[in-house]
Design a protein around this nucleic acid. Structure first.
Lengths: 192, 192
DNA sequence: CATTAATTTCAGAAATTTCTGAAAATTCTA
DNA sequence: TAGAATTTTCAGAAATTTCTGAAATTAATG
């Protein structure tokens, strides 16, 4: 590996974290490298920079494309493929959230739904099904919320995050806010 | 493996998803089994139910304890350890979020901070550092928000989620809400 | 304190994942 | 369409992770 020390630390860290993030070392390293590169890189430049085989680069880039984490670019009069990452970090965040949901949440949601359709054969199965219903309910709430939030444009999303601890005051005032939506005064849902 | 079909599907699914969630098959299966079991189970009951070795159960339970995902129980006049999961799914969610942050986010944040302290040697390094600063900034915003939200009690958290798409209207009305905190009318921050 | 019950440790076996080199396929150019 | 450039595929090698059985450790009991 032949990289400026500062970049090398970053790339190596992404490689090490790879397994915790559900990708492998090479995929992590390539992503990190592309992320901090001022220009798009072609496969051979990645081979050169990371000191790994050409075929590994090919497969790893394919994996990154499956995650929608890299962009394919073409330079005039050059038929090689060049790769970058999107440069808006908010966009990267959205993609990451979406892809992880697809891989880590959705399959479980669908298994749960399927099991919940079945009829329990005894008390233990009934109990198990109730537990699964609780899990299913929670995941549904979370994903519904996520589906709403991801519609927000970046400014609004930043605003939501920026709200920070003031979120509490906002929730205290929820009734009033909700009533704007309904155009009618709302009944208090919970008192302090 | 000798389990009611409905439980078996659930356990096998958690086993398969294990690798995507950063745990291994056995750990996933044991967690699933404990989650749907009406009573706490001891190690040998897990061995029996899942058909795996005693030592594997021991190591996997240790791993689950490191994640704070299981509780140790003792029955009177029985010196064996019995295990369950917390029964409040919201509590499970909090634990999961906390542990994943600790394993998947915090190390990166600290590496980024360290790299950002260094002095770039040339233009490429300067560019790389700027990119890392963007990433660092975003992660900081997200974790600050998370730190605030996790303080909320479950009712408030549920309320926040329940807000769903109305979050937009709420954000439109943000000025007014924030002004409650400041006890003064606020200037409009952005117009539509 | 010897015995028994329960749990943990750990070296190596088994399984899985990652990576490579060589060959095949694709795509452009003359 | 032959040839050159580039990318992809894939069988097996290498590395890593997971799992097991046997031995060691811990802790309670008589």
């Amino acid at each position: 590996m032949n990289l400026p020390p500062l970049v090398q630390s970053f790339v190596l860290h992404f490689g090490e974290m790879g397994s915790r993030w559900g990708i492998n070392r090479t995929v992590g390293q390539i992503y990190a490298l592309l992320y901090v590169s001022p220009q798009p890189l072609c496969a051979d430049e990645i081979v050169e920079a990371l000191g790994i085989s050409r075929s590994n680069v090919s497969m790893s880039l394919r994996e990154l494309q499956a995650w929608n984490l890299v962009l394919l670019k073409h330079l005039p009069d050059d038929r090689r493929d060049f790769f970058t990452t999107p440069d808006d970090v908010w966009q990267i965040l959205r993609t990451l959230a979406e892809e992880r949901k697809k891989r880590e949440i959705d399959p479980t949601l669908s298994v749960l739904r399927e099991i919940l359709m079945q009829k329990p054969g005894n008390d233990d199965e009934r109990f198990a099904q109730e537990r699964m219903a609780e899990m299913h309910g929670l995941i549904e709430r979370l994903t519904t919320w996520y589906d709403d939030v991801k519609q927000l444009d970046t400014d609004r999303l930043a605003m939501l995050l920026g709200l920070g601890s003031r979120i509490t005051k906002l929730l205290e005032a929820k009734d009033r806010i909700v009533s704007i939506g309904r155009r009618k005064p709302a009944a208090r849902e919970r008192e302090e």
